[in-house]
């Protein structure tokens, strides 16, 4: 099959599809960013909080991880208005992706923290560091490096799942490609085209991550070795 001929009917509409790209990026960075703000905090509470705080944090994390993103999205967009909170489709999508992302990010960071040998913590305390100083100077820098691959993976998942915002009418990449398909009465070219864009985006994220591993690489420690 000749790719040029295949994409030929799409030519006048490429601009329409690409007009969804900024929205896709806003949803991705917005959602992942919310995750990055809340996820580590939740992980911290789960590991170090008093038992009841830790239990609540774990319950929140596990509940959210058990709900399909589409359900969260509908709850935020269609559900919240019934208690008086009306959000735009884009804001709803960012929040829904953010909610799901923080639950996964907290899991990634929690297991990174827990994978650090207890001796690191004990050595820090033995030097006279307070628990907070031990966390900041010893645990966090190691946990972060260990968590990088998982966090990057979550980023690519968030990126791909922004396409679910189609369901509430957000004009992101996927929505635009479906609109084009309905105009040209052929689904194949626009969907293959948009699939390629998602692939290029996630692939560049992985490349960027590889660069990050290398830059932060420390012999014998977590993420650094994969570079």
């Amino acid at each position: 099959m000749n790719p040029i001929a295949f994409f030929e009917p799409l030519r006048p509409y490429i601009g329409v599809i690409l007009s969804g790209l900024p929205t896709t990026l806003i949803l991705t960075f917005g959602g992942f960013g919310i995750g990055l703000l809340i996820g580590p905090l939740l992980a911290f509470l789960e590991v170090y909080g008093p038992t009841w705080v830790s239990r609540i944090a774990t319950a929140i994390e596990e509940t959210i991880r058990g709900i399909p993103l589409l359900v969260i999205l509908f709850l935020v967009f269609f559900g919240l208005p019934s208690i008086g909170i009306q959000l735009s489709p884009i804001a709803s999508a960012i929040i829904a992706i953010g909610i799901r992302s923080f639950a996964y990010q907290s899991q990634i960071i929690r297991s990174a923290i827990l994978s650090i040998p207890r001796g690191q913590w004990e050595a820090a305390l033995s030097l006279g560091m307070s628990p907070v100083e031990a966390f900041i100077n010893v645990i966090a820098p190691q946990a972060f490096r260990i968590a990088i691959p998982g966090l990057v993976n979550q980023f690519t998942i968030d990126l791909k799942d922004t396409s679910l915002a189609y369901a509430i009418g957000v004009a992101e990449l996927f929505t635009q490609s479906v609109h084009v398909a309905q105009v040209i009465l052929d689904y194949m070219p626009p969907l293959v085209f948009v699939a390629l864009i998602y692939f290029v985006l996630t692939y560049s994220a992985s490349l960027g991550a590889g660069f990050l591993y290398k830059k932060l690489s420390i012999p014998g420690l977590g993420g650094g070795q994969q570079a």
């Binding site: 040998p117 004990e122 050595a123 305390l125 033995s126 030097l127 010893v138 190691q142 420390i218």
Partner: peptide
């Protein structure tokens, strides 16, 4: 402060890996 005044050397060294 107490721990600061007591040096501790572990069997498994426990050097900070990073």
């Amino acid at each position: 402060k107490i721990r600061e005044r007591i040096g501790f050397v572990f069997q498994q060294f426990n050097l900070f890996m990073h």
